[in-house]
Computed example of a mutant assay.
Amino acid sequence: MSEETEEGAIATVRYFIDALNFAYATTDTKHVRTLFDQSCEFCKPLVENIDDAKSEGNKFENYELQIDEILKSGSMDSELFAVAANVSQQPITVLTAAGEVVRTSDPVTGHRSMFALQYRDGSWMVREISR
């Protein structure tokens, strides 16, 4: 992740997914917030959703986002590097503190996502994710 290489960028995407899974499992978004730029319009609502659930006393069950396949990667411009991946997600169930189901999402399989990354201050950072 700290290497300014294609491998480092791909490792960052994988690590970001792991950190997001951890955030959903624990409702603790502190670490995952350090992995994306605050300009990331896709990232901010994800962590805000987790923070909102936590403040309401809710939790997530069965959340698992996974990368099925890295499709391609390469420079987008002089600042950004792109990693395209097929991503899947298990159905997410939101539960109250009492264990009552608030809502359940549908699973997502093989969805193509594009991660735009920027290398700065010695590490990669997610700048944007598009679907």
Score class of each variant (00 low, 15 high):
residue 10 I to S: 07
residue 44 K to F: 05
residue 131 R to E: 14
residue 30 K to H: 13
residue 15 Y to H: 14
residue 46 L to N: 12
residue 75 S to N: 14
residue 70 I to M: 03
residue 37 D to R: 09
residue 32 V to W: 01
residue 6 E to K: 05
residue 17 I to E: 03
residue 26 T to E: 09
residue 94 V to A: 04
residue 54 K to S: 13
residue 55 S to M: 13
residue 7 E to Y: 04
residue 36 F to A: 02
residue 86 N to C: 11
residue 96 T to K: 03
residue 127 R to Y: 14
residue 126 V to I: 12
residue 44 K to L: 10
residue 19 A to S: 11
residue 32 V to Y: 05
residue 98 A to K: 11
residue 16 F to K: 01
residue 120 R to M: 04
residue 126 V to Q: 01
residue 58 N to L: 10
residue 96 T to W: 02
residue 76 M to A: 15
residue 77 D to F: 05
residue 66 Q to L: 15
residue 73 S to T: 01
residue 9 A to I: 00
residue 111 H to L: 14
residue 84 A to N: 14
residue 47 V to N: 05
residue 109 T to A: 15
residue 43 C to F: 02
residue 78 S to M: 12
residue 15 Y to M: 11
residue 27 T to S: 03
residue 63 Y to F: 12
residue 18 D to G: 08
residue 38 Q to R: 11
residue 55 S to N: 15
residue 63 Y to S: 10
residue 128 E to C: 05
residue 46 L to F: 07
residue 49 N to L: 14
residue 37 D to K: 05
residue 107 P to G: 00
residue 61 E to D: 15
residue 64 E to S: 10
residue 42 F to Q: 05
residue 78 S to R: 10
residue 5 T to K: 03
residue 113 S to V: 09
residue 91 P to C: 03
residue 108 V to I: 14
residue 57 G to Y: 03
residue 91 P to I: 01
residue 48 E to D: 15
residue 47 V to T: 08
residue 118 Q to E: 09
residue 123 S to T: 08
residue 80 L to G: 02
residue 67 I to L: 08
residue 43 C to S: 00
residue 129 I to V: 12
residue 57 G to P: 01
residue 61 E to S: 14
residue 82 A to W: 08
residue 107 P to I: 02
residue 127 R to K: 13
residue 127 R to H: 13
residue 68 D to N: 10
residue 104 T to W: 06
residue 46 L to V: 12
residue 71 L to W: 02
residue 26 T to C: 11
residue 65 L to M: 13
residue 106 D to G: 04
residue 116 A to T: 03
residue 12 T to L: 06
residue 71 L to K: 09
residue 126 V to Y: 06
residue 24 Y to W: 13
residue 3 E to Q: 11
residue 103 R to E: 08
residue 92 I to M: 08
residue 9 A to H: 02
residue 84 A to E: 13
residue 107 P to L: 00
residue 100 E to K: 15
residue 9 A to Q: 02
residue 89 Q to N: 12
residue 68 D to I: 05
residue 68 D to M: 04
residue 107 P to R: 01
residue 127 R to M: 12
residue 99 G to Q: 06
residue 45 P to Q: 08
